[in-house]
Design a protein around this nucleic acid. Structure first.
Lengths: 235, 235
DNA sequence: GTCTATAGCTGGATAGAC
DNA sequence: GTCTATCCAGCTATAGAC
């Protein structure tokens, strides 16, 4: 597509082929999962041959890792940068909204979240194989820990147990949104579209921030306390 | 394993083999996805041969559908029965908690949710292929619509748009919990265990009910209104 | 109803020309 | 660096004995 100045035809074409294979792999892995698509199909989509993929990436698994690594570090870095900018200050959104957005946004749009990598990531998470678990832990465990700490600081009265469970809800929502099963689009006749990153972020960030902010309701006292809470919160 | 009295050796063994193949398929599909495991591996686990599986189910895809159908109808029926029992009444949990639990519980434990089918279902949802989407829609669209209606009745002031988005969060949490990526267990040092259905339901039901109950916060006025809301809700 | 054997195919990986 | 050609493992599905 883009016509780059070619200094050395060989090298430049090599880079382009490598890039095209990565792009095709990201697209097809996203659509069919890592086991649902063949190396042959990927390289055909890229206008190359399966031998080229093995030359550049060693194996199909190497290709999968390369697709992942291409953007994962960028997402983790962007998250941490955004987190460091979060602070409670007049004229800014509430701190919790800032933290939640800092966690969700880098993976959902922008340099590393857009162009299909979001969907790829959602699918890798959903597949939940030994390999993808290891990859995900290696690239994201650090920054995730930082966000848990920041959330606990912002919510000192929330128990660690509840904090982690709400984080679990946020992760599930993120993964489900990225994987885009298209279910709520149909059920809402197209009114809700989680595959639109702008709409998804603007809608989910306040909902999830509010979820973190809700008071603890221990299961045992659910039925007694909720009447009081309803009378305060219900519109 | 179980030594049943055999009246007619042929028929009884047939049923047992069929059952063992279904059980093995459910287990291995759950662990590796529908493309990650071979018919040979399934029938080996069941102590049978791949020909037996094809005899009983026609094809590998037929086997997948049979595993799904074995419990899906039961879950949808149980959901609808539970939903019809939901009502606001002194001495019972709040209506919203009842509805949320009626939706989540049948798939997470009991006759149709336990014994690994929960995990199988989570993985099928996560795989999100044309076939699994179709299966899921066929078996669950009706009851899901009923729950959306019941929730809208219970929350007349919540916009349809917000209602669907919150339902999206509930679906994502359910799928992520069923698929059990094990991530929050590690991050919380084992304190949170979404793979324990009792703990998961008792924790998630009040959190999600509260999520539905939260007031609408349009993205545009997020920063202004949240300070008021904080002062009411923050502990 | 269950088995063995196998046909027929697909896909990952490699050898070697260019 | 990229191609063609090919090897071989592993899969689904079926034929046919029992």
């Amino acid at each position: 597509m883009t016509a780059l100045p070619l200094e050395k035809a060989g090298e430049a074409r090599g880079e382009l082929t490598r890039q095209r294979i990565l792009d095709a792999a990201q697209k097809l892995f996203s659509e069919h999962g890592s086991n649902g698509v063949s190396l042959r199909a990927i390289t055909a989509e890229a206008g190359a041959n399966s031998a080229a993929a093995n030359y550049h990436f060693g194996s199909k698994m190497g290709l999968l890792e390369a697709v992942f690594a291409r953007h994962a570090t960028g997402i983790a870095d962007e998250r941490e940068t955004l987190l460091q900018d979060c602070r409670a200050e007049p004229g800014r959104p509430p701190l919790l909204e800032q933290i939640v957005r800092a966690f969700l946004e880098p993976g959902m749009r922008g340099q590393h979240g857009g162009n299909g990598f979001a969907r790829f990531r959602g699918r890798m998470l959903a597949e939940n194989t030994e390999q993808t678990r290891e990859l995900y832990a290696r690239y994201f465990n650090d920054s995730t820990g930082q966000f848990l700490d920041a959330l606990q600081d912002a919510l000192p009265d929330l128990s660690s147990h509840d904090l982690h469970w709400r984080f679990h809800i946020m992760l599930g929502t993120m993964v489900y949104t990225l994987a885009n099963p298209g279910r709520i689009q149909i059920l809402s006749n197209g009114d809700c579209d989680p595959s639109d990153p702008g709409q998804a972020l603007d809608t989910l960030v306040p909902m999830i921030a509010q979820l973190f902010r809700n008071p603890t309701m221990s299961p045992a006292r659910t039925s007694e306390t909720l009447h009081d809470i309803n009378s305060i919160q219900a519109k």
